[in-house]
C-alpha cells in the first residue's frame, strides 16, 4: 500500500505555493466512546497518544484524536479512502460504548497546502498555526471565518498542508472565505487529481 506521505505529486509547484483542494468526496468517519480506542486498535489503527494530536497511518489514512474518547478517521488517497469506507459499513450499534459519527456527511474536508498556509489561516483564525506553535501532528479545534473548524497538521514539513474540516452545509461559504484569504498569495483551487500520480 502506498503512502500519501511519500507519493510523488503531480503539481508540486502549485501545491507548494498555495493551493486548496476539496477532498469532501473522500471517506471519513468518527468514533466516540470509552471503547472506541480499543475498537480502533483491534482494527489496526495507530492512535494518537493525546487529544488534539493526529497520526498518519501507514496506508495514508489519518487518525486525529479530538478528545479523550473521540477519534476522526480520514481516508487516504491511495485506496480512495476505501479502508475508512469499509469501517463505516462494518460498524454496528451494540452494547459497547463506541458510537459511529457520520463525519463524511457532517463535515466537509479541504486541504490547504503551501508555504504560506499559516499566514492564510491567520486571516481567518485566531489560533497561532505557525510551524513552531502548531507542529506536524497537531490538531486545533477552533473557529475560522466564524464557523467551527478542525485544523490538522500532518505535514510533511517540506510541503506544509493543513486538513480543514468544517460543517458540510457551510462548505460553499467556507471555501469562498479560504480562497479569498489565499488570493494575496496567488492561491489556486486545484482538483484532487493534483495529489495523485
Amino acid at each position: 500500500m502506498s503512502n500519501l506521505h511519500a507519493q510523488p505529486l503531480l503539481d508540486v509547484g502549485a501545491l507548494q505555493q498555495c493551493a486548496l483542494i476539496d477532498l469532501t468526496a473522500l471517506p471519513r468517519i468518527g468514533f466516540r466512546g470509552t471503547h472506541s480506542a480499543d475498537y480502533l486498535r483491534v482494527r489496526g489503527f495507530e492512535l494518537p497518544e493525546a487529544p488534539n494530536r493526529a497520526v498518519l497511518q501507514a496506508d495514508g489514512s489519518q487518525v486525529a484524536r479530538l478528545s479523550q474518547t473521540e477519534y476522526l478517521l480520514l481516508g487516504g488517497l491511495a485506496d480512495q479512502g476505501q479502508r475508512i469506507a469499509d469501517e463505516e459499513v462494518s460498524w454496528e450499534l451494540d452494547h459497547n460504548a463506541n458510537y459511529l459519527l457520520p463525519r463524511q456527511d457532517s463535515h466537509a474536508w479541504l486541504q490547504l497546502s503551501g508555504a504560506c498556509i499559516s499566514e492564510v489561516m491567520a486571516k481567518l483564525c485566531g489560533v497561532d498555526l505557525r510551524p513552531e506553535a502548531f507542529p506536524v501532528g497537531a490538531v486545533a479545534q477552533t473557529s475560522a471565518a466564524r464557523i467551527n473548524v478542525i485544523v490538522i497538521n500532518l505535514g510533511p514539513i517540506d510541503l506544509p498542508r493543513f486538513q480543514l474540516l468544517c460543517d458540510r452545509a457551510s462548505l460553499a461559504y467556507f471555501k469562498a472565505a479560504v480562497l479569498d484569504a489565499m488570493s494575496e498569495f496567488n492561491g489556486a483551487l486545484l482538483e484532487p487529481e493534483a495529489l495523485r500520480h
Partner: peptide, 13 residues
C-alpha cells in the same frame, strides 16, 4: 448518564 449525543443536523439531509 451513559449516553452519546451527536448533532447530526448537517449529516442528514
Amino acid at each position: 448518564l451513559n449516553v452519546d449525543i451527536a448533532n447530526v443536523t448537517a449529516a442528514l439531509s
